[in-house]
Simulated scan of single mutants.
Amino acid sequence: MLTIDTHADTPQRFADQGWDFVDGPLGPGMIDLATARAGGLGAEFFAIWAEPSEWKGRYAHRTLQLIDGVLEQVRKHPEELRLCLSPEDIREAYAEGRFAVLLGLEGGHSIENSLSLLRVYHRLGIRYMTLTWSNTHEWADSCGDLHDDSVRRHGGLTGFGREVIAEMNRLGMIVDVSHASDETFWQVLACSRAPILATHSSARSLTDVPRNLTDEMLRALANAGGACMVNFFPAFIDEDWHAAWNRQRPERREAHEHAAKPWRERNLPIPFYVSDGVDRRFAARLPRAPFASLIDHIDHVAKVAGIDHVGIGTDFDGIPSLPEGIDSAADLPKIADALRERRYSEDDLEKLLGGNLLRVFAEVQAAATTQP
């Protein structure tokens, strides 16, 4: 059974630490080739994320650096890894016994307000774009800065934002609404002529955070042929963990400032592993979120949106903690086992674990007016 994960932040390790996906060792990471194979994971969308404050003014530079980090892994390990640009590529890689490597761009700020740059990223292999990260930028509102009065918001998409959606549709690039504001979500749904994804979001009715989708959104996403891929971050899937995490915020902010000081003094971008290390120390102080919380979210999305419109978007290597029982990609089979206990059929699991992504991907590319 082919399992596909729509979001992992592992490229930071390639670019900043010279870490190798095949040779490892896994270390503090959550996914490498060995754990992926142990967990039946056959394909991964690696998130290309230029942190917007650290790389301001150099978004394209950082984006290309991260893309290169992934492509170098494929170049060095052609027998184990294959860059995939289509659903057919994923299926072929799976049949060949090679791990399918895919690229997703996280944050529309990386295109620097340029459709030309968007097209260049597509030519390099980017097959989805998360319209915003936690930052509102020049053409789309994020849900991550809703309470920041200094942010100039647009009420969703700007006119240029709609041009971006149209160009993504033309190219056959999947539109990803994770991190988008509610207004952005609804406007994207209205103007996209191809199905859209939420590549790493969960259910707001179970855990009330803006990063998650409401039941109304889930149904609308499904009615348009899209899907919601459930995020594994405990703060998005468990109310108690979310509340405890928020209580740590003042102390955590102070620890981040202390850890950043040596980099600030040298006027250098703070590597993700520095801030992630701080968050991991604070997350370790909390009891892990119950495994059942993750299964509850998957189950809820499947019931509200329908079994054809749910998947997994783990956020591996981008979050400081995982729910109890999930330590790495090797533990992914536990999800199928838990869903079988809830009377999910093998056909259901095949859709949920990879089939739904393949369908949406194929429909987006079929709607394109330019071949990849």
Rank of each mutant, 00 (worst) to 15 (best):
I126T: 14
I312T: 08
S53M: 07
A190W: 05
T3L: 12
H242I: 10
K334A: 14
D347W: 04
F272D: 08
E44N: 14
W139M: 08
R91N: 11
M129Q: 09
D315H: 08
L105S: 11
V101P: 12
Q187C: 09
L33K: 06
C228W: 00
D208P: 01
L206F: 03
R219Q: 14
Y94K: 14
R82A: 15
D9E: 13
H154I: 11
I48P: 02
S178H: 06
E254R: 15
S192Q: 05
I126R: 13
A255H: 06
E80A: 13
L64M: 10
P262N: 11
E346Q: 15
D148R: 14
A100Q: 08
V310C: 04
F282V: 04
V304T: 14
L103W: 06
A235M: 08
L71M: 09
Y273I: 10
P323A: 03
L41F: 10
E324Y: 02
D317F: 00
V274W: 00
L332P: 00
D145Y: 01
F21H: 04
D296F: 13
D141E: 00
L66A: 04
I90E: 04
D182Q: 09
L358E: 01
V74F: 05
A368M: 11
G325L: 02
T136G: 04
R170T: 13
R280S: 08
A292T: 12
D20Y: 04
T369E: 12
V230M: 04
P372C: 15
L206C: 03
D331M: 05
Q73N: 13
E251A: 15
A243L: 15
R266Q: 15
